[in-house]
Computed example of a mutant assay.
Amino acid sequence: MIKIHDLTFTPFIDKSQIDSAISKMAEKIQKDYAGKTPVFLGVLNGAFPFVAALTQKISGNCEVEFTKLRSYAGTQTTQQVQELIGVNNLKGRDVIVLEDIVDTGHTLTKIINILENQEVSSYKIATLFYKPEAYHQNHSLDYIGIEIPNKFIVGFGLDYDGLGRNLPEVYQLIETQHD
């Protein structure tokens, strides 16, 4: 168990499970984009380890861009998404959005609006973690690493008030301490 700020977390997903999920996603993406040069669009801050791990498993040409959006305060989603860093010109490009986690889908909706306004040639969504119980959108998710219950997690890029992103595995909040 680990303590971050005022909360305690228990081990949930180990590094080997994360690596296996990323490897499977990379294989599928590589098949789908054979002969193409996709742009991987990572969503900061949380997706940076996922972007690094996934793109290292891709052979062939690809580009990496980042955008920075914020939708969480503490352990709760704010239901509002702020764009802190915008994307470069992606017009006519094949884009694969790399999300650390998809829960309510509000951030995803914002990203899709940005991509449609940029007039990309195509886009697909890849998420390392997915909370199907929390997802309230109709956008399809093309590549899903690991489905998880609707519990708050930290590690492998995910944080609690700025801390925990550096953990190589994922920890789940112990519910009895937080309502």
Rank of each mutant, 00 (worst) to 15 (best):
M1N: 12
I2D: 11
D6T: 07
L7G: 02
L7Y: 13
K15G: 01
D19S: 14
D19G: 11
I22D: 01
I22R: 03
K24A: 01
A26F: 09
A26Q: 07
E27G: 04
E27P: 02
K28Q: 06
I29T: 06
I29G: 15
Q30R: 14
K31A: 03
D32M: 09
Y33K: 08
A34V: 03
G35A: 02
G35V: 02
T37Y: 10
P38H: 14
P38E: 13
F40T: 03
L41Y: 00
L41D: 04
V43C: 15
N45L: 02
N45A: 06
G46Q: 06
A47M: 02
F48S: 01
F48Y: 12
F50C: 09
F50I: 00
L54F: 01
Q56G: 13
Q56V: 00
K57F: 01
G60W: 03
G60A: 08
G60Q: 01
G60T: 09
G60K: 07
C62F: 12
C62P: 07
E65M: 07
F66Q: 12
T67M: 11
S71R: 15
S71F: 14
T75R: 13
T78I: 09
Q79G: 11
Q79N: 07
V81Y: 06
Q82D: 15
Q82N: 15
E83R: 11
V87G: 08
V87C: 13
N89R: 13
G92D: 03
D94P: 10
I96T: 05
I96C: 03
I96F: 08
I96A: 09
E99P: 12
E99I: 02
D100E: 12
V102S: 02
D103S: 09
T104K: 15
T104G: 10
G105E: 04
G105T: 08
G105N: 13
H106C: 06
H106L: 05
T109S: 15
I111T: 08
I111L: 12
I112L: 04
I112H: 10
N113W: 04
N113L: 08
N113C: 04
I114T: 06
I114C: 05
L115S: 05
V120E: 04
Y123C: 00
K124S: 10
I125F: 01
I125T: 05
I125Q: 04
A126N: 11
T127G: 03
L128H: 12
L128N: 12
F129L: 15
Y130W: 14
P132I: 05
E133N: 11
E133F: 08
A134Y: 03
A134C: 14
H136C: 06
Q137D: 08
Q137I: 00
N138H: 13
L141C: 00
I144E: 06
G145E: 06
I146H: 10
E147H: 12
E147M: 06
E147L: 00
I148R: 14
P149C: 08
K151H: 15
F152P: 13
I153N: 04
V154M: 02
V154L: 03
G155F: 14
G157D: 06
G157V: 00
D159A: 13
D159T: 07
Y160G: 04
Y160M: 03
D161A: 05
G162C: 09
G162A: 11
L163S: 11
G164M: 15
G164R: 10
L167Y: 11
L167P: 11
P168E: 02
V170Y: 04
V170T: 02
Q172Y: 03
D179C: 09
